[in-house]
Design a protein around this nucleic acid. Structure first.
Lengths: 208, 208, 208, 208
DNA sequence: TATGAATGAGACTTCATTCAT
DNA sequence: CATGAATGAAGTCTCATTCAT
């Protein structure tokens, strides 16, 4: 059905269309600026309402420049998802490195701090996951990474809990964590007090 | 970003006559069916991706019929929001009626049960609130109703907590409650066990 | 006719997206006008250069009206292909009905006349088949219909030729026929004389 | 930052300097590779769908390099047309050189062979001529060259035919010839037999 | 009232062409 | 000369909304 001659064009599988990597320094800077702009615009308006035109404008680029690196809106979203996943993984690893010395309190504090650190891209990532049905794979991957990390940490602090209950506990904690950035967004001036409250609620639950 | 004009000629205050009230029973059923259809479609696709045509089709109606009752997509969304608010208020009132006999445990259980009861419209409501910047008013109204109800209930169970801490507690609890339907959606087969875990976490926190 | 429900989005398989059938007389007229306009514009500019906007304009319709009935440019092309196929089949059947009395000369004349009758849509159909790689199916169907019809007619006139040679003869004749409209387009004022020449060339070949 | 202006300021007559001639052998090879690539890509996708980027990629060159030699896509197409014209002329001249000894059969054979030799660039040339309205001049030039050559050859073999009929015969033959590559493309494995059939059809017609 | 065709602004995406490095 | 990023006009397609029947 397709293109060029001799075979030439493996072309791109549109469904998997990844972002084109820039080959020059100038391009690398552009790409970073574009991703940041996308994060801001998607977080502010939601995925569907975030137009590619608005994202390009937010980055001070022409629409064509945006498409130079991200062949589709979906590809841009995927990059954002990937970046978030990496940052999440790094934060969990950092906590794991301290797992020998963690108590329910310090673990809860650490997790709460981690969630607040990831706030910048979080809203955009959630908007993307909510909006797109075909993000299932990415969503599961993110989720798996998150759950595994939390599971490892919990196990270190509560080696006594049965596997079965631990699974529930992991899930409950995961959703408590998810609530933290939302709360912080709600009352920015009281973030630190809210974090303390949330951490207390989690610590109590973990220790229960 | 989108079609019509309408900003030029407000002519009729649309928010006041959000949906033309049907005169007869037949019409009332039709309207309810349309709202239910909207709720399902918006929950499944998100607000922006839920087209008026799809909503009409889901209800087995023609697009023209949908517009007979809801002059704009925004009006339809507002009605959905209103319905959710009323149901939420009713549930909180029912709990309040029992406030003399509530303990942290029964309150937590009652709130968790309430959240699960409201699941049907909840996803659509969240999608609407996330997607539209101009829903701020409705969002605040919903929120105020929710917070006030929880505040009253908490005060009944914990008359000892300082006002200042109570505000934080109210907010923390509110977000814990918000997490429950999400968790239930995640693991439908374990809903009752999850509810128990969530209720335990809340009861511990309330009693702390 | 009322769609799904809980699952909401069976939607449409885009790859098979057929043209939506109009349900009112007004629509039926519109559709015919749109197809004719498409035929003219595609014939004049080629498939790729024929813009949907230009086609709509040629039909005096808004772009949205075009898309009301033809969800994609490809769907429009397919309808054109289908119409041509039906007309071709009808013409071949008409010739077949006379097959008892055909001689090489009258057969050649009849085929040449048929090709000229189909001229209106022919250019557009060829442009479509040339331009789109995924028309393979339609192309083969058209081709099969054409070859089968010619084969039957040839067999009636030349029952003596071996099957093997007959296949070649069928193909050769098919391409001679295809040349006729092109020639006629080249020298419109000499169409009848050209038809005579072409018919003579074919008759000689058939009788050889 | 000035994009497409150029309609305002023709400045240089681009059709005159259709392609900047390369000064060295290296450049000449590069140009030939680019033209070959263009031929393949245009033949495979059609003129409109053949992107300059794809052509450059097919040649293993950067887009900037392609524009180094061909200032516009049209210029590239023109060069392709020119190359085809020269090869056609050369083939016709070679046949003319044998015109003293030609019979209807050998002439038909020779013409058929010529058409098959030109197959490589033919598809691209046809795609260009079909797609662009402003190729009329080039088309007529090609056509004139072709008709003149055939006319000369026919005259040598059939000095008896009246001028008037000869014109028709020339045209008829021209279209029979055009059909040959199409047939060959259709059934590659039977090319030689098809050529024989086509040559027979032509010889019969020429001799008639 | 019910229906569905009509409309056009605006979204996503492509690509010829330019130009700094 | 080579390279690849930058640009924006233009194309395809969507959908909220209107209105004739």
């Amino acid at each position: 059905m397709n293109p060029s001659s001799q075979k030439a064009t493996p072309s791109v599988d549109k469904s998997a269309a990844a972002s084109r990597a820039p080959k020059r320094e100038r391009g690398r800077q552009r790409v970073a600026a574009l991703i940041d702009a996308a994060s801001r615009v998607i977080a502010a308006r939601g995925y569907a309402a975030a137009t590619m035109t608005a994202i390009a404008a937010e980055a001070g680029a022409a629409i064509g420049s945006l498409y130079q690196f991200f062949p589709t809106k979906a590809a841009l979203a995927e990059v954002l998802l990937g970046r978030y996943g990496e940052r999440l993984g790094a934060a969990l690893d950092a906590l794991s490195a301290r797992s020998g010395t963690l108590t329910p309190e310090t673990l809860a504090e650490g997790l709460a701090a981690m969630m607040l650190d990831l706030t910048a891209d979080r809203a955009a990532v959630m908007a993307i996951l909510d909006a797109r049905a075909d993000t299932v794979g990415a969503r599961q991957q993110l989720r798996a990474r998150f759950e595994a990390g939390i599971g490892r940490l919990l196990r270190a602090v509560r080696p006594d809990v049965a596997d079965d209950d631990m699974a529930m506990m992991r899930l409950t904690l995961l959703y408590m964590l998810k609530a933290i950035p939302a709360m912080a967004g709600d009352a920015p001036q009281a973030t630190s007090r809210l974090r303390a409250h949330a951490a207390r609620a989690m610590a109590l639950y973990i220790a229960s």
